[in-house]
Structures are given as structure tokens and as C-alpha cells.
Amino acid sequence: MNFGVLTVTIRTNSLFWEGKPLSTPSSKEQDGRVTLTSVLDLRAAAPLTDELLALRGNDLVIDASKVERIGAPCFQVLLSAVKTWAVAGHTIAIFDESPAFSESATHLGVCLSQHETNENETCL
């Protein structure tokens, strides 16, 4: 069964968050919100790339709470997104990461903070 890789919800939000989804969306500027699906293996990397590409130009919030498994290829895509967003001067952040997501990021030593635009963000 395939429920699709991503669920994308567009919300209006220009604020930072602190590990939790924002409860009061702002209406000033449109930004995106993406909920990562549970299994982010090699097969999920291409659809994830496409979904993220479609959201360029806006700040982006990525919800990692549903992730049950994630591999290096999808981390590569997420890192690429962080870079892409930074180059474009937009904000991107990942929040509410699931234990599986954190553990995989820890094992891989991956840092998903947006260094240039979001220096206070901590690494996973």
C-alpha cells in the first residue's frame, strides 16, 4: 500500500518555532509545512526531492514526528534542502523529530541546522 510519500500542508507562518508546531500561524507571508512520511528509504528520496522542490521560494517547516525509518539518501535530500533554502535566503527548519529520526541523525552525525540563516538552531 502506498499512501504517498509526503503530506504537504500550506500554512501561513513566518515565525520560528521551538521544537513544537506553531499554534498561531501568521498570515503575513505564505510558507510551507511538510510532514515527512514514516518510511524514508532510498525509494522515498526522489519523491521527497520533488515535493521539496515544489515548495521553494517560501519558508519551510518540516514535521519529522511521523518518521519511523530514515536512511542516508533522504538525509542527503534534507541537507540539500537546507542548503537550497539558505542560498535563497529563506528559513527552513525541522521540528518534532521522532526518536527514530533523531537516532538515525545521531548515528550519521548529520547536522540539519540552517547555519547561515538560523544560527541559533541546534543540531539534531
Binding site: 526522489a46 526531492t49 542516508a72 539518501p73 542527503q76 541537507l79 540539500s80 542548503k83
Partner: peptide, 14 residues
């Protein structure tokens, strides 16, 4: 790691 428009999702960059 390249930017999203250049990335091969099944590539190896890390």
C-alpha cells in the same frame, strides 16, 4: 551535497 535542483536523489554525497 548539491542544491535540490542538482541533486540526484539516489546519489551518494555524504
Amino acid at each position: 551535497i548539491p542544491t535540490l535542483d542538482e541533486i540526484d536523489p539516489e546519489g551518494a554525497y555524504l
